[in-house]
């Protein structure tokens, strides 16, 4: 079902409860999820981290790959979680942060009304009896406020990479056993060559902005393509 993200409304949504699903099955049909720069380190031992262009703006966004084809997720599937790190953008579901208005920085809590997790009986209540956000909701709000700032910081990081011509198309050819080889298009990575040729002052900026760990975590994470291939080999699409 397509999602329907709307601002949370204490009247309309007063009776709603959120089931807690630690298998994150909502993501099972999705092969990538936005990953923020601060997550690169913990995510790098689990997923390939790459850059893709957003279809609406053409701008690069960093993502964690969880499958090698559209609609395929070999990490979160069959009710199992084959990772020890769950990206924030998966955890927060069905909540998300929306900007209250284009020119305002304040965050508005939103919810996917079509989420399977919403119901009237199971899980935690979104609003308490008095119509105030529940403790869990307050916690999510805090998490999302945090994300919003970190998401902006992540975009600044990616812009820095683009500006210094550090991003290049990742030419990936995967050997898929009997299916033969397949080329994956549309994903980008940091160019080690360009990185090694940076001017000293840019290198110093990378250091001061604390971008170096994310850069090397990304490069190391490319080894995880093999892990996706292994998972895929043992994977039967549901």
């Amino acid at each position: 079902m397509t999602s329907k993200v709307v601002p949370l409304d204490s009247v309309k949504h007063c009776d709603l409860r959120v089931k807690v699903d630690r298998s994150y099955s909502h993501i099972a049909q999705q092969n990538m999820v936005p990953l923020m720069a601060f997550e690169f380190l913990p995510a790098s031992t689990n997923f390939p981290i790459v850059f893709v262009k957003q279809s609406e703006t053409g701008k690069f966004k960093s993502v964690a790959l969880m499958g090698l084809e559209n609609g395929e997720n070999v990490v979160f599937s069959d009710g199992k979680v084959k990772t020890n790190y769950v990206p924030v953008n998966i955890k927060r579901y069905p909540f998300s942060a929306g900007a209250a208005s284009a020119d305002e920085a304040s965050m508005m809590l939103c919810i996917d009304e079509n989420s399977q997790l919403l119901n009237n009986s199971e899980g935690f209540a979104i609003f308490d009896e008095g119509g105030q956000p529940s403790a869990e909701t307050t916690e999510v709000t805090q998490l999302l406020t945090d994300i919003l700032a970190r998401d902006v910081a992540s975009d600044v990081f990616v812009d820095f990479l683009v500006e210094h011509n550090l991003i290049e198309p990742a030419e990936l050819t995967l050997s898929l056993g009997e299916e033969g080889k397949r080329k994956i298009n549309g994903i980008y990575k940091i160019s080690e060559e360009a990185l090694n040729e940076l001017d000293d002052d840019v290198v110093l900026q990378l250091y001061h902005h604390k971008y170096l760990p994310a850069i090397y975590a990304h490069l190391a994470s490319l080894g995880q393509f093999n892990r996706l291939l292994q998972l895929k080999a043992n994977f039967t699409p549901s």
């Binding site: 703006t57 053409g58 690069f60 683009v162």
Partner: peptide, 8 residues
């Protein structure tokens, strides 16, 4: 005009 095109 709003977002620009990427170089790559």
């Amino acid at each position: 005009k709003e977002h620009g095109l990427q170089k790559i």
